[in-house]
Nucleic acid binder design. Structure first.
Lengths: 221, 221
DNA sequence: GGGAGTAGTTAACGTTCACTAACGGTACCG
DNA sequence: CGGTACCGTTAGTGAACGTTAACTACTCCC
């Protein structure tokens, strides 16, 4: 309805279009003229809003990293506050990440693709935020799957991020039924991945039945 | 000259270094002078071996896509020939992909990151190879997990690729015990993901009909 | 009405980049 | 020795890019 679109203030407009273009063609593949054209102004008019091209990328990356971390922290804290089990907290983290991946595709792409185009200062900040986010997940994952060593858990988290961030690769049109179905599918995939990493025998905490697919066990490597 | 193997023929040397540099800093972020310097010659000397910078990227991407597809086809054919179960074939596909991801990191990065920097002809070729590879997986996956609809299976395959291709994000040093352990872990993660996708109840999302529930949250597109 | 601030324009500058031109050395081969 | 193909060099070219400069129009506010 009359959702108050609160004045998409040129700045945000620019950031949004820049994100889309950067994601499509890469940071170095997009000129400032194109970004300007995408918002109706042309070329150097952008410099009224940003000190430079890189500042746009920096703000985008810091923004997404910060929001991911903030959201993750909030969900973890909610879990501690209420009587949630670690498994439920992990569930919530997965859900939050999926929301990001589905709603902010361009940012998710940039987030792990164009980080190295930042200057030292910005890059270190973004990396720090990313690391904190990863460690947040690792902590929760290790509570749910205590048999995972820390390094293993971290690798699993990175892998699941790769899985969840694969949304951009799903074809644009009607490849999947819809948003909700896609989210549910990703959720199941992520949970399954963690379960699989933990090993075939006694995973205690999660009630998900093991839908038996006959596999001849561990000829793993 | 009976020794066939050790001929790192300048050309291959160039391709290898170009792959590394493209993966590190992006196609547009690397200059031809740097590529030349990386192999000991400088700048335009490269044009004795390649008609242009983009030709190097094209050869790299066609190469990796082709090798992935060839390897996948070989494994699938071996499965058909022998009495292998679909689950065993899928196992083999996963193993093959992991080998690629672990042994040719730069190429795996380029493979899904710099595709759009190619000219139409090359890009279509690479996309065709990639699509065939995906469809190969989808076929096998649907045999192992028959309850997955085709679109779902395809999404799962893409997601698992994202998972397996996450290796570049695993920290460089001794983050994981070793190659074998990493491969085994990735294998378990991938299998678990498929299991998880299949295992959930079909209550929510099995029909192909336009379930109206999806688009609820799409306000403000 | 007259600053002041904001948001935009076009023109130009300096650099970087992919690529070409012209040239030289070296190995093989008659 | 002369010829040829290969592999490399340095110098240069035209285009594109990020950024700055100089200038214009509009709005707000006393």
């Amino acid at each position: 309805m009359s959702t108050q679109a609160p004045a998409p203030s040129r700045r945000e407009q620019i950031l949004k279009e820049a994100a889309r273009l950067f994601a499509e063609r890469g940071f170095h593949g997009v000129g400032v003229d194109e970004i300007g054209a995408a918002v109706g102004i042309s070329g150097p008019g952008l410099y009224r809003h940003f000190p430079g091209k890189e500042a746009m990328l920096a703000e985008l990356l810091v923004g997404i990293s910060g929001r991911l971390l903030t959201g993750g922290k909030r969900r973890a804290a909610e879990g501690e506050g209420a009587g949630r089990t670690p498994a439920e907290v992990l569930d919530s983290l997965i859900e939050g990440h999926i929301d990001f991946a589905l709603d902010d595709r361009p940012l998710i792409i940039l987030h792990d693709r164009e980080l190295d185009r930042l200057r030292d200062t910005d890059r270190k900040l973004v990396r720090s935020l990313q690391r904190q986010y990863v460690e947040l997940w690792v902590e929760v994952v290790r509570k749910v799957y205590p048999r995972l060593a820390e390094a293993e858990a971290r690798a699993c988290v990175h892998a699941v991020f790769g899985l969840l961030n694969s949304t951009p690769h799903l074809g644009r049109p009607g490849a999947l039924p819809g948003r909700a179905a896609t989210a549910a599918l990703l959720h199941r995939l992520a949970m399954g991945a963690f379960d699989g990493a933990h090993g075939a025998d006694g995973a205690a905490s999660e009630p998900k039945g093991r839908a038996a697919v006959d596999e001849e066990s561990a000829r793993g490597s």
